[in-house]
Simulated assay, not measured.
Amino acid sequence: MHRLRNGVKNYDWGSPDAIPQFLGDGGSTDPIAEVWIGTHPLSPSIVLEDDGSERLLSDLTGDLPYMVKLLAAARPLSLQVHPSKPLAEIGFAREEEAGVPLDAPHRVYKDANHKPEMVYALSTFDSLIGFRPSAEILRVLGPLDTELTQRLSDELRADPGFATIVKLIEHLLTADIDRAEVRRIVEACRGLSEVGLDIKRAYQTAVEIAEHYPEDIGVVIALMLNRMTLQPGEAAFLDTGVIHAHLSGLCVEVMANSDNVLRAGLTSKHIDTAGLVACLQGGMARVARVTPDFLDYDTEVFSPAGGNFALAVTQISAAAPEGVELVRGDGSVLMCTGGNVTITTDAGGKVDLRRGESVYLDADDRGATVHGLGEVAQAYVPSSRALRSRLVDVV
């Protein structure tokens, strides 16, 4: 077993206290948005050896195919899409050939990987994920009665479907739209919400986002997206090509080992409209709640189709005095997500973890077992015969 020290990201949408409190470190004067656990070159984890020495996790494992994040959102993230593998390979090669530095603000493709991801909620977690059906978008836009919403409604009603929705997104991102029109839409949403008329929280969401981005066209795009709320212990899977924006809450994310993000608004970062539209034009992608499978009584396995990654969440208490054996794999990242636990192995290895601390378990850590009172989340690559979770599509 190898104890890890992980990189921290201070993005402006992060929370000054959620992650510090989770880690038991108190508050922060700066927003802390993410903790990265893995081998991505932009923020690789460090292995802390027993003799006091340190080395990159990648020196031990090579490039892991997945990455784990602890994410805390105090304000909306950017509206974004993650690319497919072919698009990522093309985009990465193009920017490498152009000599764009990896950490340049306008760099889009940080690697050649696709980025499907799964969110496991540690608190109530709100997101915008995927487009509403055409009929529902028309129901949302109709009562707003502004010039822009009327134009959008007319075009969608004339040709309902995913392709037209993508065209509307492209128009909103490229047209010279008066920001006063965005303000009018927000005020219309506010007025309807105040008299109790809302459609699946669309107007409430627009008003909430406008508090942070009052004239951003992303507020209008948000009206066209599903709002999903996860309670602690629930999970959702987002395939590549899904437009989304996390709104608030604390979660563990497991994803392919990538930092490729194409943005559509609600951000001060670079927006690549053409690249984002190209991702969306790949067709409807899967957005689903993940129904876990039980492994014995103490472990839930969230394993979405595709085999890129899985997450096993184990609860340990006095009900299992001999401990609970963890999922076996060729290697896995494990984080304590609650309480205080001890991990032991057949070879006599032992490590104590408090909430927020993490270790890497390699193939030699046979019989890894968790003891104590708490919860651990273990990310790994499932075998071909592993459990596959049932996915309940959002739309």
Rank of each mutant, 00 (worst) to 15 (best):
A175K: 12
C189Y: 05
V186C: 04
E170R: 00
P105M: 01
F162N: 11
D103V: 05
I165V: 06
F162T: 07
L141W: 00
F125P: 03
L141Q: 00
Q150V: 08
N113E: 01
V100M: 06
D176A: 15
R151T: 08
R190Q: 08
E187C: 14
C189V: 09
G99I: 02
D176L: 12
S153Q: 06
Y120N: 10
S127I: 13
L138N: 12
S153C: 02
E96G: 02
I137R: 15
R94V: 02
E187L: 14
I177S: 00
R179D: 07
T164P: 00
G130Q: 05
A158C: 12
T149G: 15
D176F: 14
L87S: 13
A135D: 15
R184S: 10
L138A: 13
P133S: 10
V108N: 09
L156H: 05
E97Y: 14
I129G: 04
A180L: 05
E117I: 05
P133F: 07
F131Q: 11
Y120D: 11
K167N: 12
V166S: 01
P143N: 13
V140S: 13
N113K: 04
E97D: 13
L87G: 10
I169H: 05
L128I: 09
M118D: 04
E97Q: 13
A188S: 07
A98F: 03
G91Q: 09
A175I: 08
H106M: 14
T124Q: 06
I137G: 12
E155S: 14
R151M: 05
E181V: 02
V166C: 02
D159F: 04
L168H: 10
E170K: 00
F162G: 06
E95S: 03
L148K: 01
L122I: 08
F162W: 11
R107L: 09
I129Q: 06
F92H: 12
T149I: 14
A180G: 08
A163E: 10
L144D: 06
D103L: 05
L148P: 00
E95F: 08
G130S: 15
S153R: 07
R94N: 05
A121W: 00
L168N: 09
C189R: 06
